[in-house]
Design a binder for these strands. Sequence first.
DNA 1: TCACCTGATGTAATCGGTTACATGAAACCG
DNA 2: CGGTTTCATGTAACCGATTACATCAGGTGA
Lengths: 337, 337
Amino acid sequence: MSSIRELARRCGVSVATVSRVFNTPEVVSQQTRQLVLGMAAEIGYLPNESARTLATKKSHMVGLVWDTDHRRPGWRHPFLQDILVALKSALSAHGLHLLMLAPDPGAGPADPRRFLRAVQRHNVDGVVIIDNGSRDPAVLALADAEVPCVALDLRFTGPTCTYVTSDNAGGGRLAATHLIERGHRRIATITGPAGNWPAAQRLAGFREALAGAGIPLAGDDVVAGDFYLDSGHAAMTRLLARDPRPTAVFAAGDEMAVGAIKAIREAGLRVPHDVAVIGFDDIEVAALIPPGLTTITQDKTGFGTAAAESLMAMLADPATPPEPTMLPTTLILRGST
Amino acid sequence: MSSIRELARRCGVSVATVSRVFNTPEVVSQQTRQLVLGMAAEIGYLPNESARTLATKKSHMVGLVWDTDHRRPGWRHPFLQDILVALKSALSAHGLHLLMLAPDPGAGPADPRRFLRAVQRHNVDGVVIIDNGSRDPAVLALADAEVPCVALDLRFTGPTCTYVTSDNAGGGRLAATHLIERGHRRIATITGPAGNWPAAQRLAGFREALAGAGIPLAGDDVVAGDFYLDSGHAAMTRLLARDPRPTAVFAAGDEMAVGAIKAIREAGLRVPHDVAVIGFDDIEVAALIPPGLTTITQDKTGFGTAAAESLMAMLADPATPPEPTMLPTTLILRGST
DNA sequence: TCACCTGATGTAATCGGTTACATGAAACCG
DNA sequence: CGGTTTCATGTAACCGATTACATCAGGTGA
């Protein structure tokens, strides 16, 4: 590995000049610049990022804190991949790399500082948090990192923190309005786990729009799931047992909606003829299962780009974190309603 | 940020002693060790990884080269997420972080060294390649990195390279055997794009098993797709136009299989009654679309852990790259055959 | 008692860059 | 022509760690 000193020696210039060729080329003469660049190409010189980071305290790396919940490892959501792709390419465009942080090795699995320490050790310029709404203390502790932080789908504020989320309440409203327009009056919903903020917002918007139309949503009409398929199946089974049974159901996540459709079919009923189903997320399967799942779509690419932009804004002006971003949600009409 | 010098000063010891407390604690006296650790906790000292990397040339980071094809950016496969989760947790267990590399900023989108340079700059201890079989020169160039390299689902060897793949030929054989056992004799297949190695292996195994049973596979019985849904739909449409039409189809990827099922339905035919379909991959939707897609499953978790293990082996002994890993494939029986 | 070893610690060079400041030559100006 | 800019470059301190080597005190064996 050739170092800057080696390159400087070969060119007969000082290391400072070489450094300037790469960092502030405009201050070095045309002639010298070409000499240095030519020789650099010849001997395959590349600046060592660790050394640069040490000297400048900028690593050009963004830490990704992800799959944080040690009680539910390997957690995944079909969103993640889309978001990750978008995030990575948005960051790449700004010359930033994404470092997927492992918890600090010195820490136990429940240590609330296990990610904070990993972040601090690595000199990352910023942090993106993709969490499952677990409100894990180790995630919340990241607010103390003196580093720009952007959380995805998690309310997360602080002197250097902001977040990106969907307009969950608006999405809930859209879902309700759609079902009402389709003529439904006996409506139920499968919500997310207690304490999950996005799910609560979806429910709030949904409830609000129903109330506006004078349609009640009784306690029994709201059943909680955990966003996974089986919980949607179980919840739907319970709802079908009600009398009169609902003619339409809003599931706060597509996987649960798929589970619900399965339960409806197993009960010998048809979708949407007997029970209409609307989901939330617009994951890949939504378009593929018959009769096609009507759903509220979230802007997955938007999550990635908005996160990158918020981060860039904070890198430019660390003092003032930007306002949280709220991404619009849209109704996607398919066959299930 | 407190440095090692600051900590040493506060403890009244030398920086060497502090360093030893963290790296070779056994050589420092019990008393000093506790003094240093106590003070470190008090002032929140954490070693700076960039400085360590500079001094030791070990970064504890593994570079991930992914989404490499600039002609098809944002490429994704439902596998990726599962593999990524497994890879990350396997590496975490060894204290390694995963750096998702952006192409070197100084390079154009077609520069064959754009990833190689990114790898070299960052002092990563190793590289994992997740490629779409594009045989992108920029990926192949990584064989020149003097760093342990593990490629996933891509034949990739070299003095410091190895790879992990599924037993694609075996999977193809499984698929053929299954269809034969079901009594099919008019069999066709939707394969992957020309030059795609895994797809070619699947086809080879499939063909071999058919030949063993004395069943011919004519040129017209093999139609190429690109692994995406639409290509499966188009290929199936062509196959259905044949006379006599096939009674069973093997698609080299589940997405194409789903597209094929769609085409069969649109032609007014039933799965599996009129045409049986078997896929490859076992992605999430396979279990969800009716009637359930029979498929050959790949061990996604195995990809992640095998990649991590190969990497660890090369880190331990850089001279001898381990043999490629071939993961077993299994038949998953569902309703489509 | 002396030579030698052992265990704990310190000194200082080193890793590969960046950058404030100094230097020196050429250009410009009245 | 002397003085002031301007431009290109060099010198050397610094970033925060690691580690080879030196040092030194105390113990051991002859």
